[in-house]
Design a protein around this nucleic acid. Structure first.
Lengths: 225, 225
DNA sequence: GCTGAAATTTTTGTATACAATCTGAATACA
DNA sequence: TGTATTCAGATTGTATACAAAAATTTCAGC
């Protein structure tokens, strides 16, 4: 966090937004651990901005549920329990099931090509057992599929939950490589999308997401998150 | 809006929070219509506060999705399309189905009594065809049931969607009274809760929520919202 | 009267100043 | 020693001042 410098003057948008994203990233990646108190003057100095835009960024984080506000004590980074993680996946997975019809309806052949390209990258990462890269491609793959849907509000909910999921990816990363069955399922998904097989993809996606939820929960439980 | 006065000094919490709630209420009830531009100096003056807390309130509304921010142009109250309304109900209804098991698990006999009390009020309102009151009790009834669940994050999603639903209640209020079948269903719901009949309430709730969604969509479509 | 550039006004973006409140340590007292 | 109490420092809450950008108006030139 303290080493993360950014030059607000280079960006053509409010400092509060860059501050918001910087803080959000730092919280999600755990650079600012849960329970930390965010003292305004301290962070404003570190980010080389005044308290005003920082405070506006904090208000946004507050509504995101990433930090908690206490009267006259400022904001504190919120902690996650196993129940939280369970609910986050439950919400994400249910929302995903809701948009599958619109995805099948809107997917084009170009989209299939793009997905196959991502799959190729994933193949390499899987063979190399490069968990870090695989996690990135995994998000890219699922993100691409999700955003084939035109359900803006549902996507908004999915995206907001996925922000949290990224928080645990550091813990689950190792498990992902081991679960090579998941990798196989990604290939099957693209095949089902290509055939516009709604029932098939419903069944596979449900299973795939349930497994990823269990994998994460097990990993978090094991490591004592 | 302009007549809504509040004395910040009487409250023991930040002005920004009262401002946030005042604005939120005004937007939800349509006092500030969709498309309106919220000019900071104007609203700050009307609320008798400075721009600083007002801006923090706007950042919260931004994350709520109630207003939209445009670079150097400030915030504009967002409009709702039929697709938006469809998605809002879809999300709410799906989340509701997810928490039914925990509701059945946690409901006590005292809760049943409380729900029956609300039902009695609803009976009166229904007979008097008092749509306004019925809408209030309806929210109270469903709100009580929902919050029997201990799934905090899912409830958070439900609550956020229901804030939007209130926006359309002015349009749908008339239809509610007419749909006296819904009133009957509320009574059945309490009976099923009393018997801890999960499958029964799943089926009824699904039907009930689907109907209310269709009722709202039809009303909004008819009136050209 | 129309066009377009410059000036003015409006409005947002950010920084700073000051007030209110809380925290914690030092001190007084039982 | 233990417990209030008070006071200083730290931190948040709000207001104001100023900078930057956009919108609007004015007015010269045609």
């Amino acid at each position: 966090m303290s080493q993360t410098f950014f030059d607000p003057s280079l960006e053509n948008r409010p400092i509060r937004d860059t501050a918001y994203e910087t803080l959000k990233h730092a919280i999600i990646t755990g650079q600012i651990p849960a329970g930390s108190r965010i003292v305004e003057t301290l962070y404003a100095e570190q980010l080389h901005i005044s308290r005003t835009p920082l405070r506006e960024a904090l208000r946004k984080l507050e509504r995101d549920g990433l930090v908690e506000y206490v009267l006259h004590r400022g904001v504190v980074v919120r902690a996650f329990t196993l129940e939280d993680i369970d609910e986050i996946f439950t919400i994400r997975n249910a929302m995903m099931m809701l948009i599958l019809p619109s995805i099948i309806e809107r997917v084009t052949d170009e989209d299939i090509d793009k997905l196959n390209a991502i799959l190729k990258d994933m193949d390499v990462a899987q063979d190399a057992e490069d968990a870090e890269k695989l996690a990135v491609y995994n998000r890219q793959f699922h993100g691409y599929i999700e955003h084939l849907s035109d359900k803006r509000r549902i996507l908004r909910v999915i995206d907001s939950q996925e922000e949290y999921i990224i928080r645990f990816s550091a813990v689950t990363i190792a498990s992902i490589v081991r679960r090579s069955k998941a990798h196989q399922e990604h290939h099957e998904m693209v095949e089902l999308l290509k055939n516009r097989d709604l029932e098939g993809i419903k069944k596979l996606m449900q299973h795939h997401l349930d497994e990823s939820k269990e994998t994460c929960l097990a990993a978090v439980k094991g490591r004592g998150f």
